[in-house]
Design a protein around this nucleic acid. Structure first.
Lengths: 338, 338
DNA sequence: GCCTGGCACTCACTGCATCCGAGTGCCAGC
DNA sequence: GCTGGCACTCGGATGCAGTGAGTGCCAGGC
């Protein structure tokens, strides 16, 4: 077990390194922090911390930098979540108020988060799987061609063309529309297949095929749209670290474009509370020197999607976690209101 | 006026520089191109080209690189548009086929373009201003709360909430829906205000306020959505040049995030034919060492939006122009079919 | 008059030797 | 168990000479 002071030394190293971006030595540490001991003592502590794998030396004659394991300990035991200042809170509210639709909300959120954390921001669109149906609309475009429009409680709209096997009358259409809505409005997407299963049976024989086709398209939309979408912003912030590791910026940009990777990472994050994945904990080559801070957000108690930031492992964890958490809360509120 | 051979020298310089990414000298030029003259002659030609401002020397004792003006001449007079190979054409078709909706089409296009040109790709969503109305749908969510859904011929769907000044019955709603559609379906967005102007007058007094509110919301949607959206991809390609100018990558990323800038640039591009803006011709600080290659695309003869790439001024113009043009054509086809 | 070979000059880049200093590990003493 | 002292390491900066690709200019030839 590490003594209290050694943990204190680790905390000091992390804080200084995050601030200065340079390996920190024993002397500088005692000068900037009131550890109450001499550099020589700190050196001994550092030797222990290094042996345990919490810090490392880039070169023999250089200061120490935290390892992924060191950051992990820092996040888990040494640092809290730093609440935002009230001007910051007000800024968030001002920034998000006045959004007109879902795209706008997500767009504003991503810009806000990027600005606040000065890192790359990622916001997942509210997921369809966890949301409920607000309305299903059917429009007749041609005798045997319908448009299916699905509206969710999070304000998302999806539409699909349906080519019918047979012409479908206006009355049948109105009938289907009414019955379909009666069954699914307010229900969760996952429950829909169950709820509409026997619907074709209650129609005239000649219409059954069309009804089945429409339902098939609806279910397909639900499944397809489970591939969730992301919005990304603030990639220019990556260049703040370009003098450090110009090599790393490319794989990170590539990873960001492969949205699958991010979706997987976000999917693994807890629904509530801030999740932090540090360096190699992200099982992706390109992100091995970055950390991902993610949190769920939603209009009610339940998280419908995640948002967060991607930045270098050397980041201000308390501040970033605070910003991410605060933004998630406000977005949740906005969603609940709309 | 520059002699034929001097133009040939300029072409050779541009081609070599684009290939090698290094200033090109007179000796190397004569070795790689059949100019039929000696290095000394080429040196004289270079001196003239430099005096005219088409090429420049980074250092006194270095080779020459083209200036923006040099690239401009190259693009305008010395290079054609390189058609794609047939495997490339097939690849485009395969890549774009099977897109399910507009988001998907735009997403695939942007990835395709980024891959093909190995540069940053930008695709503008089909603009609402030039498209026509396919359908307007009105849904009653609560006694005095409606949802307005607008569907365009390009497959785009926009929805807005409408808070009515007074409760609005189902029959009135059906009436409004029918009459509204009768007037605007198939019409251009710009014509809509004119077409619906007198619609409230034909309703009962108690419903007029609501009808007006609905129409106001519709018109607002048309105007608001004129702020067009963009999708960007392939930013990782920027890092291919990071060893050259690590400084420039940041302003470019920033410019890309300020979509207004790109929209302006794209707006200035011609509707038909490939438009190239080179270096400082882009009136934006961050893009002064990049070129923008843009082209309009659309489902019919008319361009409904633009797409293109952003890359270093030192790019393969003929190839890039060919790829951009080809992609625009195929996307137009896909849009026309759907 | 235009092209060419020759020549002196420039200057970025490389490799090498040197110096400097922040930082370390270790040890004897309090 | 903490501290001051000390020898040691080694990356980074500085200075310098050598190299070579490239240039401009000039006199001579087709």
């Amino acid at each position: 077990m590490l003594s209290e002071r050694r943990l204190e030394v680790l905390r000091a190293i992390v804080q200084d390194y995050v601030g200065t971006e340079e390996p920190v030595g024993s002397k500088a540490l005692t000068e900037r922090h009131r550890l109450g001991v001499s550099p020589a003592t700190v050196r001994n502590d550092m030797a222990v911390l290094e042996e345990e794998g919490f810090i490392a030396q880039p070169h023999t004659s250089a200061g120490r930098i935290p390892t992924d394991k060191g950051y992990r300990l820092f996040v888990d035991r040494l640092a809290g979540v730093k609440p935002l200042s009230s001007p910051e809170r007000r800024a968030i509210q001002n920034f998000l108020d006045g959004a007109v639709d879902l795209d706008d909300i997500v767009g504003r959120t991503v810009r806000l988060l990027a600005q606040l954390t000065r890192q790359v921001a990622v916001v997942q669109y509210p997921s369809l799987t966890r949301s409920t149906v607000r309305h299903v609309e059917l429009l007749s475009l041609a005798p045997a061609r319908l448009m299916l429009v699905l509206i969710t409680d999070t304000g998302r709209v999806e539409q699909r063309m349906v080519d019918c096997p047979a012409p479908f009358g206006e009355t049948s259409l109105a009938d289907l529309r009414a019955r379909l809505n009666a069954r699914v409005v307010g229900r969760r997407f996952t429950d829909v297949p169950q709820l509409v299963q026997d619907l074709p049976d209650s129609f005239e024989t000649e219409d059954r095929a069309t009804v089945s086709t429409v339902l098939a398209t609806l279910l397909e939309t639900l499944v397809e749209e489970t591939e969730e979408r992301l919005m990304i912003g603030g990639t220019a912030n990556l260049t703040r670290f370009v003098h450090d590791f110009p090599l790393t910026i490319r794989p990170v940009l590539e990873a960001l474009e492969e949205q699958v990777v991010l979706l997987k990472l976000f999917g693994e994050a807890k629904d509530s509370g801030v999740t932090v994945r540090i360096g190699h904990e992200n099982e992706h080559e390109g992100l091995s020197s970055t950390s991902v801070v993610a949190v769920g957000y939603g209009s009610g108690d339940e998280a419908v999607a995640k948002l967060g930031v991607v930045g270098p492992t050397r980041m201000d964890y308390p501040g970033t976690m605070g910003a991410v958490r605060a933004v998630a809360r406000y977005v949740g509120q906005i969603l609940a209101e709309s």
